[in-house]
Write a protein that binds this DNA or RNA. Structure first.
Lengths: 338, 338
DNA sequence: GTGAAAGCGCTAACAA
DNA sequence: TTGTTAGCGCTTTCAC
């Protein structure tokens, strides 16, 4: 690994000049510039990122905190984040918290503000207090999928109108003619899908049905969770013609449950999800869902974080709202049979 | 962000002593140790990783190169890698290459040996020459899923006996009584699944069938690829009773194709994959497949890379072989109907 | 235009 | 047991 110094010696200049050439700073004579460039090429010189970061006082990476990168939604988001970062010459560190606040805190303590200039937080079950502390230590934090655009969390965030998403999903079912609709809501405790469910309730009420009376079950936000919940829901309410789900994974589970119960989807049971992950397109029947602008959210999150890194005061507490979620009708929903 | 120096001043000692306390190096008096620890706590001091790395001459992260983290197999692997790294205090940088050697090279140039102490390479379509160059610059490289334990690539690697995997898959089909078996092989050009197919052929031949005459199609290593290939295969050979696939994603696609063609799986068509990704468990019917020890491979890869970082000479060119792949029988295979 | 010098935050000899 | 010194590779201000 050649260093700046070695390049400088070979080119017969000082490190400062090499640095200037490489970063297009200051004024450098064309002749020296050429000599320097040749030396760089000859030695195969590559800048030492941590050293540069140290000298510049800014960290070379961004951290993405997720509960588990193996959750099918996160990789799509992480990919978009990495693409955005790459364009601006930064690197992505993945932090799996296992949904454990301790692990999350340990990560924040270790890298926020030193290795990582800032941190992107997906639903990773982190303590807000820890995030605040992280901010105070000089590493901006951006919440990546805030559910309520009109109800800011007090931390900079990218918000997606999930209330609207829930509403669109419910409305689709209602417009198809469904009246007996069951709801499966992810992770009650963290309340993470509350806005989606509220959107569902609002649509039901608007249609003259009493949303609060619609059967509802809280379940883990996984395929298995959706599967089990659907079986239970259907056991208790065999007359349901449709299942609303606050996320795609449980919706996929709901379809499997229906299959196992001998209920053809969508003929005997309609199923709808929220998010539109890749898998939604690939299931049979393909899942009707409300698509959330994942890539846009990732890009906004990166841009916001970068702004915060540059000018912490200016962007403090800012809420970036993505474009609206949109209904994607596929094969898992249809009119109820007569 | 408090620095070592500030801690030292507050504790009335020099930075060197603080460093010694923090790293349990050298001998430090109990009294000073306490004072230092108090100062650390009071100031909320956290070591500056890049600075430490610079001083120690070792990079604080490991890079994982994948074509796209959104490919469903990689997150499972990445999770296991991150867990292993976390245990030893290192951090994971994700590099998506989009399957583009240029992008891969750019990444290697930028971080290998500086930001990242070493690089883990999953099938990312990288030039071997670039990997060699990376090694020469002092950043060890480990290939994470080498397909042929007995045919080393000339680079340190973790090898999985995918030939055996192919063989086990084919043998399962044969033992069920299938004779007209079609094969779908991922990505012919890169030859990345060749060993798996050879295992299939060997099993066919061993059963007295001429493997080379079995219908085979090369397809992209995706659900869609498997879907299209299966439709084509079945159109050309309607008498097939089973489909062998070199990976789970195409196998899942094959099941969808069968569903769309009105062929019940496994009654009318058996389908088998290789790898055992999470989705394999979740499909309906659940996919019969040959499980590959993903977590073990990830852990071996991390361990090997760490060894290489410590003592490049000692572990050079080493091949770590994982335990053997194992057949996992689920619902997508059955006896052919009479 | 180019160089000299100081410093980013930390570690690692060696000296005291 | 603790301090001194030098230096990791780079940037940057300020002279020249």
């Amino acid at each position: 690994m050649a260093t700046l110094n070695e390049v400088a010696q070979r080119a017969g200049v000082t490190p400062a000049t090499v640095s200037n050439v490489l970063r297009n700073r200051g004024r450098v004579g064309e002749a020296t510039r050429q000599r320097v460039l040749e030396a760089v090429a000859a030695l195969g010189y590559r800048p030492h990122l941590p050293a540069r970061a140290l000298a510049e006082g800014r960290a070379p990476t961004i951290a993405l905190m997720v509960s588990s990168i193996a959750n099918p939604f996160y990789p799509e988001f992480a990919l978009a984040v990495e693409n955005a970062l790459r364009r601006s010459g930064q690197f992505l560190i993945i932090c799996n918290t296992d949904g454990d606040p301790q692990t999350g805190r340990a990560y924040l303590d270790q890298i926020a503000g030193t290795l990582s200039a800032g941190v992107l937080v997906m639903n990773a079950n982190l303590d807000f207090a820890d995030l605040r502390a992280t901010e105070r230590r000089g590493a901006p934090v951006v919440l990546c999928m805030w559910e309520r655009p009109h109800d800011p969390p007090g931390l900079p965030c990218v918000a997606v109108d999930f209330g609207l998403a829930g509403m669109l999903a419910a409305r689709h079912l209602l417009e198809l003619g469904h009246r007996r609709i069951g709801a499966i809501v992810g992770s009650k405790i963290s309340g993470i899908h509350a806005a989606r469910y509220e959107g569902f309730l609002a649509a039901m009420n608007a249609a003259g049905l009493d949303g609060a009376r619609a059967p509802v079950l809280y379940a883990p936000d996984t395929t298995q969770g959706g599967y089990a919940a659907t079986r239970e829901l259907l056991a208790r309410h065999p007359d349901l013609t449709a299942v609303f789900t606050t996320n795609d994974l449980p919706a996929l589970g709901a379809m499997q449950a229906a299959a196992d119960l001998g209920l053809p989807v969508p003929a005997a049971l309609s199923v709808i999800g929220i998010t539109d992950i890749q898998l939604a397109r690939e299931s049979r029947p393909a899942l009707t869902t409300v698509a959330v602008p994942t890539v846009e959210a990732a890009e906004l999150a990166v841009a916001l974080l970068q702004e915060l890194v540059e000018q912490p005061a200016k962007a403090a507490g800012r809420v970036c709202v993505t474009s609206a979620p949109e209904l994607v009708v596929r094969g898992s929903t249809a009119r109820p049979r007569a």
